[in-house]
Amino acid sequence: RERTTFTRAQLDVLEALFAKTRYPDIFMREEVALKINLPESRVQVWFKNRRAKCRQ
């Protein structure tokens, strides 16, 4: 699998959701994945990595 490159628009949507909740449930992830045209698994990993970035 190639490394996913997120567009600015995708990142804006993800960051906005992250500001609301750091742990979105499966339904929220599915919804945002459809909206920004990414698989739900990529959204899940993005959140995992974003939380890790926050902890540093």
Score class of each variant (00 low, 15 high):
37 N>E: 11
44 Q>N: 14
56 Q>R: 08
52 A>V: 07
21 T>D: 08
31 E>Q: 10
20 K>Y: 01
51 R>P: 01
27 F>G: 14
1 R>N: 06
18 F>I: 00
27 F>W: 10
46 W>P: 03
30 E>S: 10
43 V>P: 02
20 K>W: 02
37 N>C: 11
51 R>G: 02
8 R>I: 03
19 A>H: 14
51 R>S: 03
36 I>E: 03
9 A>R: 11
9 A>N: 10
4 T>P: 07
20 K>C: 07
11 L>A: 12
43 V>W: 02
5 T>Y: 07
36 I>G: 06
26 I>C: 09
50 R>C: 05
24 P>L: 02
18 F>H: 04
53 K>E: 15
3 R>A: 12
3 R>C: 06
20 K>R: 13
39 P>T: 11
27 F>P: 07
27 F>S: 14
11 L>T: 09
9 A>W: 09
42 R>L: 12
24 P>C: 00
38 L>F: 05
40 E>I: 05
29 R>G: 00
31 E>T: 04
56 Q>L: 05
36 I>H: 06
42 R>P: 01
48 K>V: 10
35 K>V: 05
31 E>M: 09
54 C>Q: 11
52 A>K: 12
2 E>P: 06
12 D>L: 06
43 V>K: 04
28 M>D: 07
28 M>P: 08
46 W>Y: 04
39 P>I: 05
28 M>F: 03
5 T>R: 08
24 P>F: 01
3 R>N: 15
49 N>Y: 04
19 A>L: 11
3 R>W: 07
28 M>Q: 14
24 P>I: 01
31 E>F: 05
22 R>S: 13
15 E>N: 06
29 R>A: 05
30 E>F: 06
33 A>V: 00
56 Q>D: 12
33 A>T: 03
21 T>Y: 09
34 L>A: 14
37 N>G: 14
8 R>H: 13
12 D>G: 07
3 R>K: 11
36 I>T: 14
1 R>E: 08
13 V>S: 06
32 V>I: 09
37 N>V: 03
22 R>M: 13
20 K>I: 05
19 A>N: 14
5 T>N: 14
40 E>A: 09
5 T>C: 12
30 E>A: 10
17 L>M: 13
32 V>T: 05
21 T>W: 02
49 N>S: 11
35 K>G: 08
2 E>R: 05
36 I>Y: 07
16 A>K: 04
18 F>N: 02
10 Q>M: 00
28 M>Y: 03
51 R>C: 03
34 L>G: 13
46 W>I: 00
36 I>R: 01
7 T>G: 03
5 T>W: 09
4 T>Q: 12
54 C>A: 14
28 M>V: 07
26 I>S: 12
32 V>D: 00
27 F>C: 13
11 L>H: 08
22 R>L: 07
2 E>V: 07
39 P>V: 04
22 R>N: 11
34 L>H: 11
10 Q>S: 02
17 L>H: 05
4 T>D: 13
34 L>N: 15
48 K>D: 09
44 Q>S: 12
33 A>K: 00
29 R>H: 02
13 V>G: 06
24 P>N: 03
5 T>Q: 13
22 R>V: 08
35 K>E: 04
4 T>M: 13
2 E>G: 08
14 L>D: 00
14 L>C: 04
50 R>N: 13
20 K>L: 04
41 S>R: 11
42 R>N: 11
6 F>N: 03
43 V>D: 01
43 V>I: 13
29 R>E: 01
12 D>M: 04
13 V>M: 11
55 R>C: 14
55 R>V: 13
35 K>W: 01
21 T>M: 03
43 V>T: 01
30 E>W: 05
29 R>S: 05
50 R>Q: 13
47 F>S: 01
19 A>M: 10
45 V>S: 11
50 R>L: 03
32 V>S: 01
25 D>F: 01
13 V>E: 10
15 E>M: 03
51 R>F: 00
16 A>N: 08
